[in-house]
Write a protein that binds this DNA or RNA. Structure first.
Length: 271
DNA sequence: ACCCAGGAAATTC
DNA sequence: GAATTTCATGGG
């Protein structure tokens, strides 16, 4: 039985953070709180007037959750700095500025963003859920932990049929095998030269530049990463003409999330 | 029926 | 080597 209370957390917005396409395992409840699984813990998270509350039947590690929601980084300062770079970024920051870049498990980020390719967010969530139900450890009979690399490494692509991820099955197995064998050490990527880390991830079949960037941003907290997906290419083409995505500096990944969320919520800009 | 989705591999030119 | 096609699956 655990409960954590973090006070005076600004800027912060729970639905922006948990439902902006960086994590695929949080479900919103009717009262506006979210329930999800991190590692082997089922938690319910709510946010009101600067106070972030996390409750669980399991014991909660203060440091781990503070890190998960990136509470020790000064987002107000970063937001102000980014806003000065470009008028549209100022607009996107004002709109989506409650987003935090989560510190997800690296292996989970790797697999979920392999699944994300040529796919839509609604369907990604379904596939990830079935992956956990079929191959993750049961926590309370309803919620499941994300499968380990070991478990997935011992499967064949056809064993993944129940999750209905199609051509991505063999990519998932390849990724799990390279991680489980130790050929790729995800933790090492935290402070490796960025391009080198990207190249390392791209040894995996099914991981190109974009998926590698997402793994580095959402799984290894490389905040300089700026993943270019279809939405971002549209946004750069229409809202940031002439920009390539590498001009937002050390916190480009945060800028990217602001722009991604802002763009997805303003589809009419791209008609 | 057609088009698209937080792309990347396989094939072709 | 650069450009195009194909790859499962499901929703609109």
């Amino acid at each position: 039985m655990g409960k954590l209370i973090f006070e005076n957390i600004y800027p912060f917005n729970l639905s922006q953070t948990l439902d902006c396409g960086q994590s695929f395992r949080w479900v919103e409840n009717e009262d506006g709180s979210f329930t999800g699984v991190v590692k082997n813990i089922v938690a319910n998270v709510s946010y009101n007037n600067g106070t972030l509350t996390i409750v669980s039947d399991s014991e909660l590690d203060d440091k781990m959750w503070r890190n998960y929601f990136d509470l020790d980084l000064d987002y107000k300062k970063i937001k102000d700095d980014l806003s000065k770079m470009h008028p549209v970024l100022a607009e996107a920051s004002a709109y989506a500025g409650g987003i935090r870049i989560l510190n997800q498990e690296p292996f989970e980020a790797l697999i979920t963003f392999i699944i994300s390719q040529n796919n839509n967010i609604g369907r990604i969530k379904g596939i990830v859920e079935r992956l956990c139900e079929n191959f993750g450890e049961s926590i309370d009979g309803v919620h499941y932990a994300f499968p380990t690399a070991e478990r997935l490494a011992k499967l064949s692509p056809d064993d993944l049929a129940p999750i209905r991820a199609g051509f991505r099955h063999r990519y998932i197995i390849d990724a799990a095998q390279r991680v489980y064998s130790g050929e790729i050490d995800l933790e090492k990527l935290r402070d490796m030269d960025y391009l080198k880390a990207q190249k390392e991830l791209m040894k995996i079949t099914g991981v190109g530049v974009k998926v590698a960037d997402c793994v580095l941003l959402y799984g290894l907290h490389r905040l300089e990463s700026f993943p270019l997906d279809v939405w971002m290419k549209r946004a750069l083409g229409v809202l940031f003409i002439g920009y390539k995505g590498d001009e937002f500096g050390l916190y480009g990944g945060i800028a990217q999330q602001y722009i991604f969320h802002y763009s997805r919520m303003h589809k009419e800009l791209f008609d």
